[in-house]
Design a protein around this nucleic acid. Structure first.
Length: 790
DNA sequence: TAGTTGGGTTTTTTT
DNA sequence: AACCCAACTA
C-alpha cells in the first residue's frame, strides 16, 4: 500500500497532475496541506524531479515551516533543497542578490508600516501637504494599493491629472519613493514590486530563476494580489508548471490588495488549466459544517461548491447572548476551564477568535483573573513596540548608516539634549550634500552647529562608530547588550507605571534572547540578516505547537489553523460585520461573511458563538444588535436559539443618517428573554447541555479563583510568567551576581556612588532604590543597572 | 530644550 | 480609552 492510497479521488487527481497549470479549489478543511505535501513527494519520488527545482509559496513563515516538516517526513531525501517560503521572504532573497541592477544597494533595510508612516509624514511636510486635509493614512493606503497593482509613481501621476487631491498624493508617492531610495530602504510592497521590476528589466535574471524553479506551488492563492500574480506568472514562464491552491470563500484580504480575480480568472489566463475541487471536509463535525454552509450561501460572488463530511453530527452549536462583554468573557473562560477540568480538552485545544484586536483585552483580563494559561497572537506586534523599535533602530543605525529614519529615531533616545532644531539643521545639511543624516551628525560644522550642541552630536556619533567595531568583532548579541549598557536604556526609559516598566523590560529580555538564539543558529551571525529575519516575521509565526495555552487572536490570524473548540465572540452587527463594512456596501459585507465562514470552519468539534448586548467601544457604551451572520444559521443547529430581532430589515439601511440605530436599546423587544447572565439561568429558558455536566448545575463559586496571595499563585497564567522567560531569566541570573542589601554602598556606571535605601523583590527582578551622592534618588532594576558593591 | 497639558482623533482586518 | 500632536510653560 502506498501513501497515496489514503487520499480520496479528487485529492489523488490533484497530486498526480504534475505538468501544466492546475487550480485546486480546496474548501475549508479539505486536506489541502496534505495534498500539497503529497504532491511534492510525488514529484520527487515518482516523477524524479530534483527538489532543488521546486518552489512552494505559503502565506506565513509558520506555514512554510510546517510544510517543509511534513514533506520531510514522507520524502526520502532532499526536502531541505525545496524552496519553501512566503512571497515576501522569497523576494528578499532575490533582491539581496540582484537589486544592485536596479540601482539599490543589496544591504537595503526593510521598512514596516510604522516606518512608512513616519517617512510619509516627512514627505508631506516637505511638500507642504496639510495632513489635516489629506490624512497620512489615506496616502499610505493609496501608495500601498498602487504598489499592489504595480502602478508606478509615473503611472499614478498620469491617472491623477484632473483631480487635485489625487495629484497631491501622486506627488507624495514620487517623493516617498525617492526618500526610500535615499535611505536605501524598501517597504513591504516594494519587496514584491521591485522583484517584478527586476524580472522585467533583467531577462537573464528571470531566466535563471525560471530554470531553477520548474515546478511552482502557491498556497492561499485567493489572497494573492496583482503583483504576486505577476510574479508567479513570470516565474512560471513558458513551462506553466504552476499549481495554485485556494478557496474563494476564504478570501479575506481584499483590504490588502488581494485580487479575487486571480482565482476566478485563472482558467481564462491559462486555458489549458486543469481544475480540481476538493469538497470533502475532514475537519469539522456536521453541525459546524452546516452552519458554515448556511452562512456562506448568502454570498453571491462565489464559485459554486458544497462541503460535505462523513463525520458525525456532533454537538450543537452553543450560542449565548450576554448583557455585557464582561459576562461574555467570564463565560468563555469558565467554559474553557470546565472543559479542561472534565478532561474534554487541553487549554491549547481551545481558541478564542474575534473580529478586532481590541477585543482581546477583556478576555485577557479575565484569563489572568482565572489563572488560565493563554497566549495572544497579534495586536501590537512585538517588533512594533516602542522599546523594541528603539533598540532595532540602534542596530539599524550601526548596520546601515544610510537609514535616516532609524538614526533620527534614536539620536535623542535616551535624552541627550539634541532637539528638533539641531535635527532639522542636520537634515538640511545632509540633503544639500546628498549624504545620509548620520554623515551629517559626524560633521556638525556642515550644519553650522557649534559649541555644546556640536559636542553632544559628536559624542553620539562616536558612540555609534564604536558600536560598529563591537558589532564587527563580537557580533549582534554583544552589540545589543553594549547598547543597553552604554545608553543605560532601561533606566532612562520613560514609563508611567511600574507595570509598564515591567512589561517593557520583559520585551527587551525577549529581544535579547531572540538575538541570542539567532546567534546560536547561525555560524556567521550577520547584523543585516538578523534585521531582515526580524522584519519579515508574522505574529503567528511564533506560535509553537505543544504549548498548552489557549490562543486568542483575530479571525484573520486564525486562517489556516484548526482547533477542537472555538469561541467566536463579539458577534454583533457593527462589530462583526464591522460598522465600516455595513456602511460601505454588499461587496464589503460579503468579505465579512467570508471572514465569518473562516471563523466557523476553524472549529473541529465544538463551536461557541457569543454576543453582548452592551459593550464599550472607544470609551462609549454601544448597544449593538446580534450579528446578521448568526441569524443566517438555522435555529435547529443551536443548543439555545438566538432570538431574532424584530426590526431586521431597514435597520442597516446605509443611506439613512440615523446611525444611532446601532446603539439604541429600544430596538430590542422588551420581552426578549435574557439568555444568560453569567451563570445565572433565567427560569423560563431550558438548558440543553449536549455533553458532560452542565456548567449551570455548578455553583458559580466553583470557578472563582481562590484568594491567593500574589507570590503563592502557582504558575503559568500570570502575565509576567508568559513569554520567553526561561531565557530571559538566565540573563538576569548571570548578570545580577552578588546579593545586595539595604544600606550597601554601590557604584553605578553612570550615576557613580550611592547608598541603597530600599529593595523590592519582584517576580523577575529586584527593584532597587539608591540615593546617589551626585544624582539623588533613582529606582532601578538590579539586573540591568549593574550595580557594583563597594 | 524638556516637560506638561489639553484637544482632537481613532480602528477593522496584516505580510 | 488610548494615542498623538501642537501649544504653552519652565
Amino acid at each position: 500500500m502506498s501513501m497515496y492510497d489514503k487520499l480520496n479521488e479528487q485529492q489523488k487527481e490533484a497530486v498526480f497532475c504534475t505538468e501544466g497549470p492546475l487550480l485546486i479549489l480546496a474548501g475549508a478543511g479539505s486536506g489541502k496541506t496534505s495534498v500539497l505535501t503529497h504532491r511534492v513527494a510525488y514529484l520527487i519520488d515518482e516523477v524524479g524531479v530534483n527538489p532543488y527545482n521546486i518552489l512552494a509559496i505559503t502565506f506565513t513563515n509558520k506555514a512554510a515551516g510546517e510544510m517543509r516538516e511534513r514533506v520531510d517526513k514522507i520524502v526520502g531525501f532532499g526536502s531541505e533543497q525545496i524552496f519553501v517560503s512566503t512571497f515576501h521572504s522569497m523576494c528578499v532573497r532575490i533582491l539581496r542578490r540582484y537589486i544592485n541592477l536596479l540601482d539599490y544597494d543589496t544591504s537595503f533595510t526593510i521598512y514596516d508600516t510604522d516606518d512608512q508612516k513616519q517617512l510619509i509624514k516627512e514627505v508631506c511636510k516637505k511638500l507642504q501637504i496639510d495632513t489635516k486635509i489629506i490624512k497620512e493614512r489615506t496616502i499610505q493606503n493609496k501608495i500601498s494599493s498602487c504598489k499592489d497593482e504595480l502602478v508606478t509613481p509615473e503611472d499614478f501621476y498620469l491617472q491623477s491629472l484632473g483631480d487635485v487631491q489625487l495629484r497631491k498624493i501622486a506627488d507624495c508617492y514620487r517623493e516617498y519613493q525617492a526618500a526610500l531610495k535615499k535611505n536605501n530602504a524598501l517597504d513591504f510592497d516594494d519587496l514584491l514590486m521591485k522583484t517584478v521590476e527586476l524580472f522585467k528589466a533583467e531577462p537573464d535574471v528571470l531566466r535563471n530563476y525560471q530554470d531553477r524553479w520548474q515546478y511552482i506551488m502557491v498556497d492561499e492563492y485567493q489572497d494573492t494580489n496583482t503583483a504576486q500574480f505577476e510574479l508567479i506568472r513570470l516565474l512560471a514562464g513558458s513551462r506553466h508548471n504552476l499549481c495554485v491552491v485556494g478557496d474563494d470563500d476564504q478570501s479575506i484580504y481584499k483590504f490588502r490588495g488581494a485580487n479575487i480575480r486571480n482565482i476566478l480568472d485563472f482558467e481564462h489566463f491559462y486555458p489549458e488549466a486543469k481544475v480540481v475541487k476538493l469538497e470533502q471536509n475532514y475537519r469539522s463535525v456536521q453541525n459546524i459544517l452546516n452552519a458554515a454552509n448556511a452562512v456562506i450561501r448568502n454570498n453571491s460572488a462565489r464559485k459554486d461548491k458544497s462541503l460535505w463530511s462523513k463525520k458525525e453530527e456532533g454537538e450543537r452549536i452553543h450560542f449565548r447572548h450576554f448583557d455585557t462583554a464582561k459576562e461574555e468573557a467570564e463565560y468563555v473562560c469558565r467554559d474553557i476551564i470546565k472543559s479542561v477540568t472534565h478532561g474534554e480538552s487541553g487549554y491549547g485545544e481551545n481558541a478564542v477568535l474575534y473580529r478586532t484586536n481590541a477585543q482581546s483585552r477583556m478576555i485577557e483580563d479575565q484569563m489572568v483573573r482565572e489563572n488560565l494559561p493563554y497566549r495572544i497572537v497579534g495586536g501590537v506586534s512585538f517588533y512594533a513596540r516602542r522599546e523594541i523599535k528603539d533598540l532595532l533602530a540602534y542596530l539599524k543605525t550601526v548596520d546601515n548608516g544610510r537609514d535616516d529614519l532609524a538614526c533620527k529615531r534614536i539620536i535623542n533616545v535616551p535624552k541627550r539634549g539634541i532637539g528638533a532644531t539641531s535635527i532639522n539643521k542636520l537634515q538640511l545639511a545632509a540633503d544639500e550634500r546628498g549624504v545620509s543624516f548620520f554623515d551629517a551628525v559626524l560633521h556638525p560644522e556642515w550644519a553650522d552647529i557649534k559649541g555644546a550642541a556640536a559636542e553632544k552630536l559628536s559624542s553620539f556619533g562616536n558612540m555609534i562608530l564604536r558600536m560598529r567595531v563591537i558589532s564587527e568583532e563580537q557580533g549582534p548579541l554583544k552589540l545589543l547588550k553594549e547598547i543597553l549598557d552604554i545608553t543605560d536604556y532601561i533606566n532612562q526609559m520613560e514609563v508611567d507605571t511600574e507595570e509598564e516598566a515591567e512589561d517593557r523590560i520583559e520585551n527587551i529580555e525577549e529581544l535579547i534572547s531572540k538575538v541570542a538564539s539567532y546567534e546560536e543558529e547561525h555560524d556567521e551571525p550577520n547584523l543585516s540578516e538578523l534585521l531582515e529575519e526580524i522584519a519579515l516575521v508574522a505574529d503567528i509565526d511564533s506560535v509553537t505547537e505543544g504549548e498548552d495555552r489557549t490562543l486568542l487572536m483575530t479571525i484573520h490570524s486564525a486562517k489556516g489553523l484548526e482547533f477542537k473548540n472555538v469561541y467566536l465572540i463579539g458577534m454583533e452587527d457593527g462589530l462583526f460585520p464591522s460598522y465600516m463594512s455595513i456602511s460601505s456596501g454588499d461587496a464589503e459585507i460579503e468579505e465579512e461573511r467570508r471572514l465569518a465562514y473562516v471563523g466557523i470552519t476553524r472549529a473541529k468539534e465544538k463551536l461557541t458563538i457569543s454576543a453582548a448586548k452592551a459593550r464599550m467601544v472607544h470609551g462609549e457604551t454601544q448597544m449593538n444588535p446580534l450579528s446578521r451572520f448568526v441569524n443566517e444559521i438555522p435555529k435547529s443547529l443551536f443548543d439555545i436559539a438566538p432570538v431574532k430581532r424584530q426590526t431586521y430589515d431597514g435597520y442597516y439601511d446605509s443611506d439613512t443618517s440615523d446611525r444611532g440605530g446601532y446603539r439604541r436599546y429600544d430596538s430590542y423587544r422588551d420581552d426578549e428573554p435574557v439568555s444568560f447572565s453569567g451563570f445565572k439561568r433565567t427560569p423560563d429558558e431550558p438548558v440543553k447541555p449536549s455533553s458532560g455536566i452542565s456548567p449551570y448545575a455548578r455553583p458559580r463559586a466553583f470557578y472563582q479563583p481562590k484568594a491567593t496571595p500574589e507570590e503563592d499563585k502557582p504558575f503559568v497564567a500570570r502575565k509576567e510568567n508568559l513569554g520567553l522567560l526561561t531565557k530571559g531569566s538566565d540573563i538576569i541570573a548571570a548578570k545580577s551576581g552578588g546579593a545586595l542589601a539595604v544600606g550597601d554602598r554601590v557604584r553605578h556606571i553612570k550615576f557613580g556612588d550611592g547608598t541603597i535605601t530600599n529593595i523590592v523583590k519582584e517576580t523577575k527582578d529586584n527593584k532597587i532604590t539608591v540615593i546617589f551622592d551626585n544624582y539623588g534618588q533613582k529606582i532601578m532594576y538590579q539586573a540591568f543597572a549593574k550595580l557594583t558593591k563597594l
